[in-house]
Each structure stands twice: as structure tokens, then as C-alpha cells.
């Protein structure tokens, strides 16, 4: 149950509350560049979600099995050269950025080849965006967020498993799609408007983006509300439900006053 609440919260947070575009500003380039037509924007959104899921899968796997201290693969390989204790200490997280960017770049290449060969209609609809996605910050950002929840977490219970990592990627991509489609819808209408000449193009897009971001700010705090509703009741109200405990607390309080 708790696990599903966690998943729900990650999904809500990634897609709407902390939207990749309106809250973290990642993926702004396609947001400004490819948001002129709704169908193109939707294609871009789908492509990003697709690549993001694959990249998240890869980067989660690489982080857990290779990069973090005590990861099985690196410990196994290092085991040939040093003692098992020393091998378990090997920390390759310094290489993480390089590894992630190559995981993204190669997955984009493979996805492009695969889609081109087996799903030509799909390739026609979003294939053109695939090479662009390699340098899309949203993908790398998703990988980095997953890393920050896997490596260097003190509390072993809070380390993300694959399910949580994939949820972040899928719903982060969904949030990106929502944002870029909303923007494209507005920009299609803007064609009919009389915009001051200096503001045409990127400038007006950014101002509108700001206004939508204000709207999205309204979602802040929804996640803590949902969490309170779904997870065990905090203990302030618990005390009110059980008056005998209040009495107990009061007697203790007296002692507390006397003691110092």
C-alpha cells in the first residue's frame, strides 16, 4: 500500500506539480522550438517520453550494478585485482555524467534504427525528433534525479527501485508532453493575433510560458495533501482521538517540570 502511495506521489510530482518544464526548466529548447503545431508537439512529447523511459532504465541499472560503492559488477571485476573488502569500496560515481550521456546517445541511436526498421509509420511521425533528443536536458535531468535517489542516500529505505525510477521517467515525459501540447495549442491560436513585431516567436512563447507556470504553481502542495490523506494519520490528531493519552501526558508534564 505504502509503495503504491509512493509511486502515486512520484507520478503526481513529476507530471504536474514539479513539471519538468515549468518548475525545473529542462527541455526548454524543444519547448520553444517545436511548439508551433499541436501534432508536432505531441510527436515530440511522445519521443521524449519514449527515450526518457529507456534512458531511465539504463541509467538505473548502470548506477545500481556498476557505479555505486559496492555495486556487484564493479566489485566482481575489481575482485580479481584486490581483496573483496577493497573491491566493495570502489566508487565510480565520478564517471556517472559521462556514462549517462553515452547511455542516452546510444539508446537514441538504437531506438532510431529499431523504429525505422520495424515501425515506419511511427518513424514518420516522430523519427525526425529523435536525433535532437540526445541533447535534450530533460532526459539527462531524469537520469540525474534517479541517480540522486539511488547513490548517496543515507536511509536504505528511501533508495529508489526500478519501479520508482521508471515512474519518474514515464510521468516526467507525460508532464513534458502536457506542457508542450498546451503551448502548441496556444501558439496555434496566436497565429491569428496581432503580436508586436519584436515579440514574435520566442519572446511571446516565453511570456506565455511564464503565465502557464503561474497556473501550474497552483498545484504546489497537492502532493503533501495527498500524502496526508493516504498515509497514516499524523500523531497530533491521534492525541485528540484518545483523551486518556492526553491525561497521561499531563501527569508526565508535571514530572517534567519538577525534574530540572
Amino acid at each position: 500500500m505504502d509503495y503504491f502511495v509512493d509511486i502515486l506521489l512520484i507520478a503526481l510530482s513529476a507530471s504536474i506539480i514539479n513539471n519538468f518544464i515549468f518548475y525545473y526548466f529542462v527541455g526548454i529548447c524543444p519547448f520553444v522550438g517545436v511548439s508551433k503545431k499541436v501534432d508536432m508537439a505531441f510527436g515530440m512529447g511522445c519521443a521524449v517520453t519514449f527515450v526518457m523511459s529507456i534512458a531511465a532504465f539504463l541509467s538505473w541499472g548502470i548506477t545500481v550494478f556498476v557505479l555505486i560503492p559496492g555495486a556487484p559488477v564493479s566489485a566482481f571485476i575489481a575482485g580479481f585485482f584486490t581483496t573483496p573488502e577493497a573491491a566493495a569500496q570502489i566508487d565510480l560515481t565520478v564517471l556517472s555524467y559521462i556514462v549517462y550521456i553515452f547511455a542516452i546517445a546510444s539508446s537514441v541511436q538504437f531506438v532510431e534504427m529499431y523504429v525505422k526498421k520495424f515501425f515506419p509509420p511511427l518513424y514518420r511521425s516522430f523519427g525526425v525528433f529523435l536525433p535532437l533528443i540526445t541533447t535534450n536536458c530533460a532526459i539527462l535531468f531524469a537520469c540525474l534525479t534517479i541517480m540522486s535517489h539511488v547513490a548517496g542516500v543515507d536511509n536504505p529505505k528511501e533508495v529508489w527501485d526500478l519501479g520508482k525510477a521508471m515512474t519518474l521517467a514515464l510521468f516526467g515525459g507525460l508532464g513534458f508532453t502536457i506542457a508542450i501540447v498546451i503551448m502548441a495549442g496556444i501558439r496555434e491560436e496566436l497565429e491569428l493575433c496581432d503580436i508586436p513585431k519584436p515579440f514574435e516567436g520566442a519572446a511571446i512563447t516565453l511570456v506565455i510560458g511564464g503565465i502557464i507556470a503561474i497556473a501550474f504553481m497552483g498545484f504546489t502542495g497537492v502532493d503533501s495533501g495527498v500524502k496526508k490523506a493516504l498515509k497514516p494519520v499524523p500523531h497530533v490528531s491521534q492525541v485528540q482521538e484518545q483523551p486518556q493519552r492526553v491525561a497521561l501526558l499531563n501527569t508526565k508534564d508535571c514530572k517534567g517540570v519538577i525534574m530540572p
Binding site: 515549468f22 526548466f25 508586436p196 519584436p198 515579440f199 520566442a202 519572446a203 511571446i204 512563447t205 516565453l206 511570456v207 506565455i208 510560458g209 511564464g210 503565465i211 507556470a213 503561474i214 504553481m217
Partner: peptide
């Protein structure tokens, strides 16, 4: 939102 609006206006 301030970031978007400031950059948009400056660009204009």
C-alpha cells in the same frame, strides 16, 4: 514563472 516572463520581456 518570473524566469520565463523576465527572459521573454528582455528578448522582446
Amino acid at each position: 514563472p518570473g524566469a520565463f516572463i523576465t527572459l521573454g520581456l528582455l528578448l522582446g
